[in-house]
Design a protein around this nucleic acid. Sequence first.
DNA 1: TATTAATCGGACAAAAATGTCCTTTATTTA
DNA 2: TAAATAAAGGACATTTTTGTCCGATTAATA
Lengths: 144, 144
Amino acid sequence: MFSKACEYGIRAAVYIALQSLEGRRVSVNEIAEEIDSPIAFTAKILQQLSRNNVIHSVKGPTGGFEIERTDMETVKLNLIVKAIDGDQIYVGCGLGLKECDADKPCPLHDKFVDIRTDLRHMLESTSLYELATGLEVGLTYLKR
Amino acid sequence: MFSKACEYGIRAAVYIALQSLEGRRVSVNEIAEEIDSPIAFTAKILQQLSRNNVIHSVKGPTGGFEIERTDMETVKLNLIVKAIDGDQIYVGCGLGLKECDADKPCPLHDKFVDIRTDLRHMLESTSLYELATGLEVGLTYLKR
DNA sequence: TATTAATCGGACAAAAATGTCCTTTATTTA
DNA sequence: TAAATAAAGGACATTTTTGTCCGATTAATA
């Protein structure tokens, strides 16, 4: 569904959000350790998220990554997915046809649109804050 | 969503079904031409589908690929997807966690399960016959 | 001001997915 | 029986994704 990069990106962002709720700024090393992902690859992904203003980075000692409380509520998953995987999920025919739309639909068009619409709504309505608080309360888990 | 291989596989299977409805057996070359896919790669995929009894292959002159009328109705898309992409779509955590289930759910677990369930139902309930007749009647299109 | 700790960014490496080529095998038909 | 046709299958090539390494940059602090 999502690329590996995107999976790591979402997990990282949720972890950063969780720690930011506690006022902690976290390093790539800690993030990669906590979400069980390859360090250097994770660093690249965090750069992308930082450039796209999904998370905030601070260089130097005591630096690291954080997300402001307000951003946590504003930033929905679709922003992260877009920053890493691009439009992939939203655009294009399910069967890979170049010319496929409501006018000249592929055999799977309608059924595919339904599912993708649901997915889009889910991503557009789910905030980092929501996911982070679920973790905080112990309702959900991130490790392994 | 699907791999390229899977997209080609579904398109090919639908085209074969359509032609089989007219009593025509079709060659890899014709299939690749009609669904606009790389020939040799398509040949590999057709082999997989043949081995998994999704389609039937006949060697030698006048040979090619076909699908029996009864199979067309029996074979649902999930069979094709499984034959090519394996369990990928059905199994595993949306965020790539190894240990993620209803007991120890990842932050996205429930929302992800919903969407995947919809997708699974769609694939399990859509037959090649249904897709092929849509094409036959001119309601849908396969080219480009 | 030197040291240290952290991200940034570019180049490289490995693995997986996609795609090609060519030989072998099966089968029809002249 | 020989020639022609079509799938089967193995080896190889290319591209994309995933992952690593290392030097440059930034900033805190001793």
